[in-house]
């Protein structure tokens, strides 16, 4: 009888410890596994349109500025071809640095296909990139139509 009481007590204790442990965790959201294809962009210039329309601030026309902004820690985004939505990159192939991440700096303006997890929060889409499936390099030759934007990003 005594041994049964001890077992029940142990069970209760484990339950309390487990519950408290869960409460101590941040409230993780359920993400959605996706495969996306699109250009890695400078999100600030794209959203604010401070230098012109969104088309002007993608591709080769805006390549140097996109590198500047990624180096400065502005969120890098993937502009998904299928839905034309911007996905803010929060981690990249296991690297949780999303501010001035070296890999992201070197991929600005590239068209990538990635596998990852998308989280939706208060109107924005965030992306953890698990794997780069393919890198097509820079294929959006916007300089042919728009020149270099901004002008100071030319040699």
């Amino acid at each position: 009888m005594q041994s049964r009481s001890v077992s029940i007590l142990k069970c209760l204790c484990y339950s309390v410890v487990f519950t408290l442990g869960m409460a101590g965790q941040s409230s993780a959201m359920e993400g959605k596994k996706v495969t996306l294809t699109g250009e890695m962009i400078d999100t600030w210039c794209y959203v604010s349109q401070i230098m012109g329309s969104s088309a002007v601030v993608t591709g080769t026309a805006h390549h140097v500025c996109a590198v500047w902004c990624a180096a400065g820690g502005i969120p890098v985004g993937l502009l998904n071809k299928e839905d034309n939505k911007v996905y803010m990159v929060l981690s990249f192939e296991g690297d949780e640095t999303s501010v001035a991440n070296e890999k992201l700096l070197n991929l600005q303006s590239h068209e990538l296909t990635v596998k990852g997890t998308v989280f939706e929060l208060d109107g924005l889409s965030y992306l953890n990139v698990d794997e780069v499936v393919s890198d097509n390099g820079i294929v959006n030759l916007t300089h042919e139509d728009f020149g270099i934007v901004p002008g100071q990003a030319a040699p």
Partner: peptide, 26 residues
């Protein structure tokens, strides 16, 4: 300083803070 940050509010939800006052920086 290595992760993107937001400000979590009651009225606006969690706001991504993408930009500051210095040119080309977050």
């Amino acid at each position: 300083g290595n992760r993107q940050l937001g400000v979590k509010t009651d009225s606006l939800g969690t706001v991504l803070v993408a930009k500051n006052l210095t040119d080309f920086s977050g």
